[in-house]
Structures are given as structure tokens and as C-alpha cells.
Design a protein around this nucleic acid. Sequence first.
DNA 1: CGAGTTTGACCGGCGC
DNA 2: GCGCCGGTCAAACTCG
Length: 165
Amino acid sequence: MQDHELLVNNLNKRKFVECEEGNTSGRTETLHQGSLKRPNEGVTRVVKDGYQWRKYGQKVTRDNPSPRAYYKCSFAPSCTVKKKVQKSVDDAHLLVVIYEGVHNHESMEKEPDDTSNRRLNSPMEMLKYDEALVEQMANSLRRNPDFIEDLADAISSNILEYDLF
DNA sequence: CGAGTTTGACCGGCGC
DNA sequence: GCGCCGGTCAAACTCG
């Protein structure tokens, strides 16, 4: 399933904090605020979860003061998958990603270079992200003890998969 | 020059 | 019927 792919991808990019299922038609993920939305921060441009997304709109919604961004999958013209990205109401450090639909094509997993991830911005930035990441994880885990099991399960199964590569 | 982003306008659904 | 709101479109702009 793509769930795991996304999870692993985000972990690789050091942006993933927590993931929760439970949206009706789509999936919801909460990401640590990283370079996700700002291509000019010098990291990867559009590819961050294995797919290529093209932004087609942005809106400020009522329930959340932060603008919500709308993305379509631009990797395959026939792919109608969309995703919405907005900051969490609870925690502005988190990005909530809502996926709608299912990809009808392979992901772009084979990112040409793992080296493109390599430099977030600077070692300082990485440290900052790491700190915030740990903090966020601790907080969310404290709040959601049940989540530990799911997360550990997902991570461990993916680690095993990755070991094969 | 092409691909992607920004941003204001537009449209349709829904509640009153 | 009207207004609000979320979602989408498209022209202008930016960047590599």
C-alpha cells in the first residue's frame, strides 16, 4: 500500500511526525513543517512523498486561519489524486495532508539521488528540525498512547522492507 | 522557454 | 432567494 511508502518517504526526509488514519475518502497525515511548501528553501521541489504534485489553488478556510493549499498529481495526466495541505490548528508546526483518491501509476520512488535530500538547508536547520521533531513526537505520543503501537508497527515493517534495498 | 506557483475570480453546494 | 464557504480555474508571474 502507499501508506507505508509515504510514511517511509517522509521519514527519510525528516519531516514526518505523526500519521493518523480516519478520513472518509482520503487519508490524513500530519507532517512536520519543513521545506514542504517552499521550493525556494533549497530542497526538493515538488516530490516529497514519492509523487509529483502541482499546486492549483490556495484558500483560507474558516476553521483554520492558515491557508490550505490544493495539489493535483501531475506525474500522470490520468491520475486524479488530489491532496490538501494545511497547518494544523492545534500546532502550527504540523502540516496536515489530506489525500483524496488513489494513484493509478507507480510512485517516483527512484528519486535520482538520495543526495537531493541531503541538504536540507544547513546543519543548523537540520538540528532545529530534529529538535522540533523530537518534541513533536514526544507531545503527540504523550497525547496518543495508542499511536505508539501503530507507528512502531508501520515503521518496523518498513524498516524491514528498506533493509532489502 | 517550459514547468510550476501565486492569487483573484468564479462556481456550486448548503444552510438560513 | 441570498449569502457564506470550500474548491477550482486561469492569467500573470517566477525560476531554472
